[in-house]
C-alpha cells in the first residue's frame, strides 16, 4: 500500500497529459466543421467538442471509460443479446471477447510453461540438448510473430485443427521462451557445494532434482511465468487477428477497419487490465508459495 501514492500520482499525470493531447489531436476536424458551417468557434467550445467526438483521432479518457462500461455491464445487463436477457454472454460485449482471449491465453500459457519446463530440464540434464536447444529457442523468438501467426493458423487449419488450439499454440510459442531461460537458470542455481552435499548422501538423480534443483528454481520459475503469461496474451491477440472468431484482437482489428477509435482504445485497455490481473494473480501465488517455502522473509 505504501506505493499507492506514487502510482496514483503517475497515473494522474498520464491522464492529465492525455487530456491535454486530445485537444490538438482532434481540433483540426472541429475547425473544418466550423469553417464549413461558416461559424466562429470559441476556444472553450473547441475544447469541449474535441472531447466528445464520435470518431476522434484520440479519444478522451472518459470516452474510453464510458465505452468500457457500455460494452461490459450495460451490454450484458440491458443488451438484447446480453447475459441478463439470454443467459449467455453477448458477442458484442468485451466480457465475451475478453473470455475468448483469456481461455486461449490460459491454454497457451499452460502448454508454453509445460514445454518450457521440460526443455529446461532437458537442457540441464542432457549435454546434447544443452549444446543444441538454446540457439533454436532464441532463433524462434527473432521471427516476428505477426508473420508467423497466419502460417500456423493456415497449416493447422489444413489438418483440421481450428478454434482454440491454433491461437493457444501461438500463445505457447511466445510464452515458452521466458520459462526456458528462467528455469535453466533456476535449475542451475544450486552451487557446487550443494551438489557435492547431495553426492555425500549418495542421493539419486531424481532426489537431487526434487529436493534441491526444483525448490531452488522456484523464485526463477515465478519470475519467468509473469513474463510468460503476458507474452501468451500478446500471442493470443495476434493469433486472433487472422482467425476472426472473437477475442480482443478481433475487437482491435474491427475497430480499426471501421475507424472506431474509442472501441480500439477500450479493447486495448481491456487487454491491459486482463494482463494486469493475470500477472497480479501469479504475483499473489508467488508471494504465498515463497512465503510458505520460507524464501520470502
Amino acid at each position: 500500500m505504501r506505493n499507492l501514492l506514487p502510482v496514483l500520482t503517475v497515473a494522474l499525470a498520464l491522464i492529465a497529459a492525455w487530456y491535454v493531447a486530445v485537444v490538438p489531436m482532434n481540433a483540426q476536424w472541429e475547425r473544418d466543421q466550423a469553417a464549413r458551417a461558416g461559424t466562429e468557434l470559441a476556444f472553450g467550445d473547441l475544447v469541449a467538442r474535441t472531447m466528445a467526438q464520435d470518431r476522434p483521432r484520440l479519444p478522451a479518457p472518459h470516452q474510453v471509460v464510458a465505452e468500457l462500461w457500455e460494452s461490459t455491464w450495460v451490454e450484458e445487463r440491458h443488451g438484447r443479446r446480453g447475459w441478463w436477457n439470454t443467459g449467455s454472454l453477448s458477442n458484442r460485449s468485451l466480457v465475451w471477447h475478453g473470455w475468448v482471449t483469456l481461455s486461449a491465453t490460459m491454454l497457451g500459457f499452460l502448454i508454453g510453461t509445460g514445454l518450457g519446463v521440460l526443455l529446461a530440464i532437458g537442457i540441464v540434464y542432457n549435454r546434447a540438448m544443452d549444446a543444441s536447444v538454446m540457439p533454436w529457442a532464441i532463433a524462434s523468438q527473432t521471427i516476428p510473430i505477426i508473420a508467423l501467426a497466419p502460417m500456423i493458423i493456415v497449416v493447422l487449419n489444413s489438418v483440421g485443427i481450428t478454434g482454440l488450439i491454433p491461437k493457444s499454440i501461438i500463445a505457447a510459442y511466445l510464452s515458452f521462451f521466458p520459462v526456458v531461460v528462467g528455469m535453466v537458470k533456476g535449475l542451475r542455481a544450486p552451487d557446487a557445494m550443494q551438489l557435492d552435499q547431495m553426492k555425500t548422501w549418495n542421493a539419486s538423480g531424481v532426489q537431487g532434482f526434487l529436493k534441491l534443483r526444483l525448490p531452488s528454481s522456484m523464485p526463477y520459475f515465478f519470475a519467468s511465468m509473469k513474463i510468460g503469461i503476458a507474452a501468451a496474451l500478446v500471442g493470443t491477440i495476434v493469433g486472433e487477428l487472422p482467425v476472426q472468431q472473437g477475442g480482443l484482437g478481433v475487437r482491435l482489428l474491427s475497430g480499426s477497419y471501421y475507424g472506431q477509435t474509442v472501441q480500439i482504445w477500450a479493447a486495448l485497455f481491456g487487454a491491459a487490465i486482463l494482463a494486469a490481473v493475470l500477472v497480479g494473480i501469479i504475483g499473489w501465488v508467488q508471494r504465498t508459495t515463497l512465503k510458505r517455502m520460507g524464501l520470502a522473509q
Binding site: 557445494m193 550443494q194 557435492d196 553426492k199 548422501w201 525448490p215 520460507g294 524464501l295
Partner: peptide
C-alpha cells in the same frame, strides 16, 4: 560413500532456505 560411511560438514552451513 555409497554405504553412507561418513557425514560431511562443509565450510558454509549450506542449509536449504526453504526448509526449517
Amino acid at each position: 560413500r555409497r554405504a553412507r560411511a561418513y557425514g560431511y560438514v562443509f565450510q558454509a552451513a549450506g542449509l536449504y532456505p526453504w526448509r526449517t
